[in-house]
Amino acid sequence: EHITKHPLQNRWALWFFKNDKSKTWQDNLQLVTKFDTVEDFWALYSHIQLASKLTSGCDYSLFKDGIEPMWEDNWNKCGGRWLITLAKQQRHTELDRFWLETLLCLIGEMFSDYSDDVCGAVINIRTKGDKIAIWTREAENQDAVIHIGRIYKEHLGLSSKVVIGYQAHADTATKSGSLMKNKFVV
């Protein structure tokens, strides 16, 4: 029998961030590995810690090969993110499921033609509440952004009463907290 791995549309890079205040932000960001098949994705996924087991201040990022998980990257700077903010108790109930669904949406290219607008996804483990976001490349591509948001919300199994927001990185970089404005909501 002829056995081959199942190729993904894109090669993806997993990054790990661990907050060490004695180092610069960039030094704290490490490339873990890259993969481009379904089988290699699962080999990696089963080898690493679940997000809920990471310590506060840590992030995982999964981005298309060639895109760094930071606003400043050329692929990201005009883009933004669909942000899921979780309540503290959701770390034990939904965080890992949400993150896995996010990863599957990315590697499976589940946003049809608009998948090209996806840059990657980030999960932030924080004491005050964890966050998951899908980053897209162009905040002005309204059709793409809205489509991605709707499909994403569906895959997370969020009820229609839950509203999620999309913020442009340019706005996030200059504002903070309650001043952060949603460019779109679904």
Binding site: T4, H6, L8, Q9, E39, W42, L104, G108, M110
Partner: peptide
């Protein structure tokens, strides 16, 4: 064409032994 995979298809591989 584009390599698009659905959720169920991807999950089917989660616990498969790795192939060479």
């Amino acid at each position: 064409g584009k390599k698009q995979y659905g959720r169920e298809f991807l999950l089917d591989f989660q616990f498969m032994p790795a192939c060479v």
